[in-house]
Design a protein around this nucleic acid. Structure first.
Length: 197
DNA sequence: CGGCTTTGACCAGCGC
DNA sequence: GCGCTGGTCAAAGCCG
């Protein structure tokens, strides 16, 4: 389960207070998915069969207020393809429709993203032999939804679509931030907490 | 017993 | 207006 470098050390709590982190560590930053306007955007290269921590929790909060012209981004990185989409409707309020989709190679459909999901529906969709599963964040007061379906062209790929923004911390993820020395921006990242920690 | 999954029914949006 | 499709609801059953 150690697909992320051990950057969670020293952050045993999950509060959002900016913590110092080694900015030189070449690890996946959650902000890689958020700060799409950065030309130097570097897609993660070390994903294993388990997924990255998903960004919806922070997306729409403030980090891409200036990025309203984003509409569709596709990132290919080895086994993983990311399709990130903002509202797609200019002027629409992002916090209501914040959406991001992952297409990644995975044997399991339910990705362990640190959040707790409750399945509330399953539907076979047109043009796809595979059913689509509907999940809702089981945390009280959190209305984030997620759709999971297998790629109809390549069933070894799972398409996961997150819709909404978590209004709470993930129970299974330690979040930490690091400040970019150039832009001064705070980047938010997450690491899965090992079961024995 | 509580929380979860399953699954058929229902509803709303959209195109014709 | 009607039918199709996607999304959600809710009852029933399962499981730890």
């Amino acid at each position: 389960m150690a697909h992320f470098p051990s950057r969670s050390q020293g952050s045993s709590s999950s509060n959002s207070t900016p913590l110092h982190a080694d900015a030189a560590a070449p690890a996946f930053d959650l902000s890689d998915f958020i700060m799409f306007d950065q030309a130097e955007f570097a897609p993660p290269s070390s994903f294993g069969p388990e997924p990255p921590v998903v960004p919806p929790m922070v997306d729409g909060g403030r980090s891409n207020d200036q990025n309203s012209n984003l509409s569709n981004i596709t990132i290919n990185s080895g086994d993983m393809t990311v399709n990130a989409r903002s509202t797609g409707v200019e002027g629409e309020r992002r916090e209501e429709t914040s959406r991001i989709a992952f297409r990644m190679k995975s044997e399991v459909e339910v990705l362990n993203d640190g959040f707790k999901w409750r399945k509330y529906g399953k539907k076979s969709v047109k043009n796809s032999p595979n059913p689509r599963n509907y999940y809702r964040c089981s945390t009280e007061g959190c209305s984030v939804k997620k759709r999971v379906e297998r790629d109809r062209e390549d069933p070894s790929y799972v398409i996961t679509t997150y819709e909404g923004i978590h209004n709470h911390m993930s129970p299974g993820v330690v979040y930490y931030t690091t400040q970019d020395s150039v832009s001064g921006r705070y980047y938010v990242a997450g690491c899965q907490v090992p079961p024995d920690s």
